[in-house]
Amino acid sequence: MAKREPIPCLIVDDEPHARQALQNALARHPEVEVVGLCENGLQAVKAINEQRPQLLFLDVQMPKLDGFDVLELVQEQIPFVVFVTAYDQYAVQAFEANAVDYLLKPVDPERLAKAVEKVVTRVGMEEPSRLQSLLADPVRERELLRRILVRDGSEVHVLAVDAVMFIEAADDYVAIHTADATHIKLDRLSRLQKKLDPRQFCRIHRSYLLNINWLARIESESKDSRIAILTDKRELPISRSGYGNLRKLL
């Protein structure tokens, strides 16, 4: 095999000993080069955005953003992922996310060698994992969201679902409006709607998903034209079918 550049990789783990141990173990594998250690998901998103490593050794259970959250936020920027976790309960989910491999802690050096080998083969075939398509699968998460993650460059915002007033569709993006800010997220309104509590969020219009807790009143301009007035006086159009949805909910 021709000599190639080492694969730049990041280690993401909230436990200091775990980061250190993995870094030490990887020192024996010249095929990969550790270019950074991240203590949490926020640092990981930032580092991935700025350093564009090819490979991620990713812990699942971390504060604020877990491993899957990190992938959701940087899916298009990271080609290869190896999950490293103490529990095997995430294995199926990890492989659904098209991870190259799934290592259990404590990491067995032989098992790590195999994972590195797999990565090298995949990089050699120049076949990036299709993280995005699989992560976009709506059935992957059946649990209702408590929070919505949005990324703005290297910065991550964690929005409480209750603080979201309404979500607006805009091409391939959605604009998530809270009382004091608007965040853009690469997602589809219908897909997001499926993950939100249907008793709280109502599709009042093809382009608007409203959190009914922020609805102050409904005004009708004519028989088929109604407007939702939010608690901060903002106005949103209500379509005819949207009015039907709203009435069912209220």
């Binding site: 436990e15 103490a86 404590p106």
Partner: peptide, 17 residues
């Protein structure tokens, strides 16, 4: 068990160093 797993991990990571 999660607690024990976590403890074992720490142990595996620090025994050498």
């Amino acid at each position: 068990p999660h607690f024990l797993f976590n403890a074992l991990n720490v142990l595996a990571n620090i025994t050498d160093s």
